[in-house]
Amino acid sequence: MRKFALIAIPYLWLLALFLVPFLIVLKISLSDIALAIPPYVPKWDWATGFRAFFSQLDFENFIFLTEDDLYWKAYLSSFQIAAISTIFTLLIGYPIAYGMARAPGEWRPTLMMLIILPFWTSFLIRVYAWMGILSQEGLLNQFLLWTGIIATPLTILNTNTAVYIGIVYTYLPFMILPIYAALDRMDGSLIEAAEDLGCSRLMAFWLVTIPLSKNGIIAGSFLVFIPALGEFVIPSLLGGSGTLMIGKVLWEEFFSNRDWPVASAVAVILLLLLIIPIVLFQRNQQKQAEAEQ
């Protein structure tokens, strides 16, 4: 009985916080748009019963998504932006994590603090700060003009570049922390053993350090990629009209068009697309846990 309760709690949790909202969204996505509050039909009515209710649901909205190329382009572009950002985050995050793991013990808590500190400020404020940095009259342009590297201000804000910067900046800690955890656990004598057996420093890094931090790299990449794929705030604030991301499309469907059924269909597809990397991520975590036993 106790065992059952232990298992039941996470499932109830999942049911309340994930499955129920998902079913509601799924139901809306199968409905039709209407001038009403809320703006769709059918609504559940005890009088008409199941049959009438279900007969009004259809896949119209999903079919619509395939007809307008805006949507699949937005999915594709989101995927691309998320993937490229993940790669950049990895390239920047790995050396930082490596440096932290190599730093003297008394420094590590401070370095860790520096990584986590930005989280204590509102995310929105930090993104607005980037607007101030990247705009035409922003700090970055002023600095570059002052040093004489450029003659006319660069246009960074409202381009995809700004979106990349924003995503990399925001999600960097999610990359650093799992990689740091992996590197920190690594036994330093393994590198010495590799060198002893004839590896140069670089070779030892490639043959030992990288494979042993593989799980950290995979975990970090998913932790960046998954939220970046559905990211909405960063592309809306830092991106331009040319920045196409599914999160932004979703938002516009909901609030500008007030087309809840189509917006819900977009959300359902996004979720289904995200399930693939999430499952892969879970598998990786599980494998790691098994290997550590």
């Binding site: 590799a194 060198e195 140069s200």
Partner: peptide, 19 residues
């Protein structure tokens, strides 16, 4: 440097590559 020495060491902790 260690990688250029005709010396090999068996470590106190064995230091086997776990992967």
């Amino acid at each position: 440097p260690p990688n250029k020495r005709a010396v090999n060491m068996m470590f106190q902790s064995y230091a086997l590559f776990p992967h």
